[in-house]
Amino acid sequence: MADTPEDMNGEGPVDRDILAGEYALGVLEGAELREAQRLNLSDPTFAAQVKWWNNRLNLLAEHAEAIEPSPGVWRAVEAKLSSEVSEIGQVTPLEQPPRRGPAPWSIATALLGGGLAAAALALYLNTPTTPVTTAPPIVEAPEPGPQLVAQIASEDDALRLAGVIDSAAERLSLNVSGFAPGEGQTPVLWVVPEGGAPTSLGRIPEDGSFARDLTPGESALLAEGAALAVTYEDAAAPSYDAPTTPILLAGPLTEV
């Protein structure tokens, strides 16, 4: 497999299954670690291999010496859970910067299929806020940049995400359904660049539509070949450095 890391010994590419074992063991570092993180998010086969290894290697824990924790540990766990319970009912506001430009099209249409998604996009691009028949093209208007779409559903179809990225306008639009995070959790969207580590795009709703402007840094990561992924994370975290839970959904971004 051409895109797996080369063995330092020059023995050729590392078998993905062995890379999964190394990832589960925790020995990877640098580019190999980032590649394994990316695969774990974007490739269900690889993620299943990591689980297979974890289920076996962690049997070794039985050999570790048992050490009684001090009583303060349980008290701290209880205190932490109690503070979370008291927060239930408070809705964490999503970062939703003010909209600019035309209102987003209904990306629910994007859920129906690639052809329709492209058609919806074409329709959108051809129907700005002003009627098509008027006025010649405005010379200063930026050329439309690449449009990227991702349409992802879980195996049982319970979780769905349709995303459209307008690179020129640096804007992300999503339509999501079916997410059901646990207490104190939120769905978090990740971009996984080809060959790179996952980068958080922040919290997203459990259900419904969502749109926001992208920073130039985020826009740069959202390119053809990158993948979008969703995990459940701590809703109270100030930021998300790396996914801490298994991937729920992942799929590639395709240019249309």
Binding site: K51, N54, N55, R56, N58, L59, A61, E62, V73, W74, A76, V77, K80, L81, G182, E183, G184, Q185, D234, T244, T245, P246
Partner: peptide, 23 residues
């Protein structure tokens, strides 16, 4: 402490048919 807070949050995703509780 952090581990048991995670266990609390993630327990719904534990599947006894796919993994043993201790692993």
């Amino acid at each position: 402490q952090e581990v048991y807070v995670k266990v609390w949050r993630r327990a719904a995703r534990f599947d006894a048919s796919k993994a043993s509780p201790i692993t």
